[in-house]
Nucleic acid binder design. Structure first.
Lengths: 369, 369
DNA sequence: CTGAAAGCGCTTACAG
DNA sequence: CTGAAAGCGCTTACAG
């Protein structure tokens, strides 16, 4: 009987797995009266020029009618390209990375690429496993926004294996890997300059983790900003682990207890959360921000403009950074040399209520009256 | 000359594409002196029992030495399984979804599955294209955290196509799709009960978008909470589009201008951002929170505990929700019937400084003195 | 311009 | 217990 074979086969298929009956190029070919290879050509923008218009339209019509979608899994195997870019993100819970992802996707999607996001939290030892996963999935390239100094060897091996890689948000000195980063030194400089221009003379930093180049750069910039007014930050030995609110609170409490804060009128916290914690510790000690101590953050995280006081901070162009990183990885994937590409985006000062002139009005060396 | 053929081939490979020289099962087989099929069996937990231990160890050793990772692209094609779950998220920029993703990944990863996250913002018409992408990539199942009433038909079609689907965070009435959701009605109830217990009598809601079932449920629960004290929320015609700070500000300004707020001592905003905006509009009008008007939010977003006043809100167990959603989709992928599964997680009240007893101490009907 | 064939790398009935 | 073969669905030199 006609169709018996097909029915039986369908029956088996259905019984074995989910009833997703997927249309293949073969089905479309039968419908359009052509060979499957012609289906492939008619649907590939790069190849369709070689197909007679009439044939192409017939195939496209049939494909549309049947709802045909080429199986990317098969296409990937044949082409040795998955049209997938691995994206390593420090945290899905930190909204500033949301804009980075937006930027990356905005660049990848129009080119048919899909970002495969994996979270590799700081200090989690999850970078290596994540890279193994991405290798197994044969991603075409990797954007890494989580590099720490301890990752140097792993990243070096990754690049040596031939995988196109772009570092963004953070980078590591001494690795020949393309990077797209914020000019953190400029950011630190802007913070320092801002506090100096308000009239502060005694200032200190609440540093982020030292094994992240980004934070080291913010320090350098901050020192530059102070140096321009012949000032230096007050030195102290406090270090932070994860740059969050509780660490900011802990460090500021220590600084207050040890007397390091005596006479200090402004603090540059290397990110917003540290700054928020610092303000809370100040408040607990009976000090007001900005009246007694001005506090700056870094990142311009969501909601920090709704805090009391609204947090002065440095904003990074995260969307732009993501787009640039996307562009770089696509260049690398397409065989263009990017190894020594360094793209830098510029942060901006966002002055708000948490910084003001010091109460004692210790204005920068104006002629004495 | 020995090896000449191989060298020539490698040369071509290198010239053609990235120099990622990937080890295949064939390479491992040669190294271990077995057939590629034995390599496959020795490395597959489900099959390795059939291989003589000695052989298996030899293969595993060779695989380890060569750094062999099976090509998931080939494996997917052969097995008709990609070990990938599509995850549709409303926004990467909203940190509450970070915990949802954590929960999902925590469940998927131990089972060898990978989440493929795609952002489909509300009101963006990006659900359909995203689903097309996921189909093309042959994901094994889809977790959708973005469903709106306008998506009903698209989701119905998706399920009809045989794709395993689980809705989470939000859901749609009248669709036979498994769902894992917060008990929003309970959340609304807790909010109402909290305000009533503080002594409030005249209260109103700032609603979220009406075409999201979640928000409608919060309203129902809130009304329940008030009804338990024989109260009803003040009705008004204000509606919000995207539930963000500026909408909260706009709506509260309108409510104040139109006199609807007269005598109202407490407001339930259906999410934190609306609540923050409402507080700001109150302040602009010379009213203090909570002294003049108490405000509750919903979500317990990051940083709302650092606002002034710290926002009272309802917390959802996002990690748990994500884990449950992950578990459900794996069940569905593995052919277990989930169509009518409804998993509900319970929110909790997080009372903070933005809610207090009303100034005029309109305590609930105590015997007059 | 189109068809037929080969092959991407894996997995899995099927033999033996 | 292991090998040899077939085939997942696509794409692309190769013919014609």
């Amino acid at each position: 009987m006609i169709g018996e074979g097909a029915d039986a086969r369908d029956g088996i298929r259905t019984a074995l797995r989910s009833p997703v009956s997927l249309i293949t190029a073969k089905d479309v070919a039968r419908e359009a009266g052509v060979h499957p290879s012609t289906v492939s050509r008619s649907l590939d923008p790069e190849q369709m020029a070689r197909v007679k218009t009439e044939t192409r339209l017939r195939v496209q019509e049939a494909a549309g009618r049947l709802g045909y979608r080429p199986d990317l899994t098969a296409s990937s195997l044949r082409r040795q390209r998955t049209m997938t870019i691995g994206v390593l993100i420090p945290s899905f819970g930190n909204p500033i990375y949301g804009d980075l992802i937006h930027g990356i996707n905005a660049e990848l999607e129009p080119h048919g690429y899909q970002g495969l996001m994996i979270e590799t939290p700081d200090g989690s030892d999850r970078l290596s496993p994540a890279l193994e996963t991405l290798r197994g999935r044969r991603v075409d390239g990797i954007i890494c926004a989580t590099s720490r100094s301890e990752d140097r060897q792993v990243l070096r091996d990754l690049v040596d294996s031939g995988m196109p890689v772009v570092l963004t948000l953070r980078w590591l000195a001494g690795l020949a890997i393309a990077r797209v980063v914020n000019d953190d030194r400029l950011g630190g400089f802007l913070a320092g300059q801002h506090l100096v221009s308000l009239g502060h003379r005694r200032m200190l930093e609440i540093p982020g983790s030292e094994d992240i180049e980004t934070f080291a750069d913010r320090s350098r910039g901050f020192r530059d900003g102070l140096a321009a007014a012949a000032l230096t930050p007050i030195r102290h030995g406090e270090r932070t682990t994860t740059p969050d609110v509780s660490e900011g609170r802990r460090v500021m409490a220590n600084l207050l207890a040890s007397g390091v804060m005596d006479g200090v009128t402004a603090v540059f916290a290397q990110n917003d959360l540290l700054g928020i914690g610092a303000i809370e510790a100040l408040r607990s000690a009976g000090l007001q921000c900005p009246e007694d101590v001005s506090v700056m953050g870094f990142n311009d995280s969501p909601l920090v403009d709704h805090l009391d006081p609204a947090l002065s901070t440095i904003a990074m162009p995260m969307v732009e950074m993501g787009m640039r990183a996307g562009r770089e990885i696509l260049r690398a994937v397409n065989g263009q040399d990017t190894e020594h590409d360094v793209v830098t985006v510029r942060p901006t000062l966002v002055p708000r209520a948490s910084t003001s002139a010091p109460a004692q009005a210790a204005r920068p060396a104006a002629p004495a009256d």
